[in-house]
């Protein structure tokens, strides 16, 4: 009775409060733009619809997976539509990768490459002169200069290599997208959009391949220049007495990367002596009770099982 009286007194406040909490809670729990998780018995149409929703929401990875499932279900009327949208997803993925990829074009610029090649030639010439003069100071100077140029060439080669790798990924995505559009057009010849997109994607691929070739040429040129300079430096190093080696001078040894490690990486600290701590997940599992683990097999057949027994009460 008291509760009812209180309710009548504050019913409007309670209603408004209830609305506010429900709307706020609902908006936190249920994201508006996300496609709901599909049940196990989802149809290809459901996959397609969910994939399209994800594509519109810009969730490309999810959209790719859903549309891929829709295409893989082999339902003829839906396949061309799903392929078309899959092509759109992959073009967008490639574009995203391209935006994120390191821009090696600056270092692969022909002028920059020519400049580095000129520097390498100049350094090689100085090394030759120093060797010919047999002057230790000249040798040291030429060695230091050559080492600096070689470092720059190595850095540029690495940048170009990274750019090449990332652009190859973009190329793979776009090639697949072009294939998707072509497949959509093949399955549904009246789909002019698919043909148009395939052509547009192929044009973009052609431009990308040009850029890749440019990068590859630049990389090769720098690699050759770096190798030539490295040989000269090695020759010069052999002629210089060790005590006269400049501190921190570049040499053959420190140019080599450690096998299995990338430059800039450090070996992780050893784990000896650290206390083993239980992870929060493990603690949660312990607290939540027991579970079947993957190693525990459930009985198959009648072997190894017994009849359930009646639970006995406490034996006070």
């Amino acid at each position: 009775m008291m509760v009812r009286a209180l309710y009548h007194q504050f019913r409007w406040t309670l209603r408004l409060g209830g609305w506010a909490v429900l709307v706020l809670g609902g908006s936190l729990v249920l994201p508006a733009e996300t496609a709901p998780p599909l049940p196990a018995g989802a149809t290809p149409r459901d996959w397609y619809n969910a994939g399209t929703v994800e594509l519109r929401a810009g969730k490309l990875a999810e959209a790719e997976e859903l549309l891929q499932n829709s295409v893989g279900s082999q339902v003829a009327p839906i396949q061309p539509l799903a392929l078309y949208n899959l092509g759109c997803v992959r073009v967008a993925q490639g574009t995203d990768l391209l935006k994120k990829s390191p821009d090696g074009t600056g270092r692969a610029n022909p002028d920059h490459v020519e400049m580095l090649a000129g520097l390498a030639d100049d350094a090689s010439r100085r090394i030759d002169e120093a060797i010919a003069s047999e002057n230790e100071q000249k040798m040291i100077s030429a060695y230091l200069r050559g080492g600096g140029v070689r470092r720059e060439i190595n850095a540029a080669t690495k940048a170009v290599h990274q750019a090449l790798e990332s652009k190859k990924q973009v190329l793979a995505k776009w090639q697949r997208a072009a294939g998707d559009f072509r497949s959509a057009a093949e399955l549904h010849p009246a789909d002019g959009d698919a043909t148009f997109n395939a052509n547009a994607t192929e044009k973009a691929i052609a431009a990308l391949i040009d850029k890749l070739n440019q990068l590859e040429r630049a990389g090769n040129k720098m690699k050759a220049a770096g190798k030539q300079l490295g040989d000269k430096l090695k020759q010069l190093k052999g002629m210089m007495p060790m005590p006269n080696m400049p501190p921190g001078a570049p040499g053959e040894d420190d140019e080599e990367d450690m096998p299995g490690m990338h430059p800039g990486e450090k070996e992780g600290a050893g784990k000896t002596g650290d206390e083993m701590k239980i992870s929060p997940e493990e603690a949660a599992q312990l607290l939540a009770g027991f579970k079947l683990s993957g190693e525990h097999r459930l009985p198959l057949g009648k072997e190894g099982t017994s009849k359930p027994q009646d639970r006995k009460g406490k034996t006070w």
Binding site: L30, K203, A207
Partner: peptide, 22 residues
């Protein structure tokens, strides 16, 4: 940046019977 001339996903709206959100 390569911006391919891609038209929007087809069809403009998902097929009928799209799953209703919770």
């Amino acid at each position: 940046m390569v911006k391919p001339s891609i038209t929007g996903p087809t069809p403009a709206t998902p097929l009928a019977d799209a799953p209703r959100s919770g």
